[in-house]
Design a protein around this nucleic acid. Sequence first.
DNA 1: CTTCTTACA
DNA 2: TGTAAGGA
Length: 130
Amino acid sequence: MKEKELRRTLAVLPIGTAMKLTDLSARQIRYYEDQDLIHPHRNEGNQRMFSLNDIDRLLEIKDYLADGMNIAGIRYAFEEQKRKSKLTSIQGASHELTDDDVRRILREELLQTGGFEGPDIPGFFHKKSL
DNA sequence: CTTCTTACA
DNA sequence: TGTAAGGA
């Protein structure tokens, strides 16, 4: 179960493949990297190389954006995922939540705009969604 | 041909 | 965000 995760983190996909897999433009992908939403590796020729995890990440960004969240909000969401997974990791394997669980739970919290209990982040949501 | 960075009639 | 420019 660890060998598979290793492969998932291998950055072997060029931006062209990432574009086809996520249906995002190179411009968008590079912009998200600029906003620290993704950190693709760079090969010898300074070319971005994406892992399958990076692809999932891009797909999540796409979903969050579609739900009216903006870059700042998404960055915060990912920070929360990191924070929460650190907690579960020190609580023991019995209560282990998969990354997918964490993502879905957080997603639900954020979707219920009125019920979201978190620090106020200026411009968390797109003006359009407000 | 693909990707990279920078800049904006 | 798109796209053009100029180099790798």
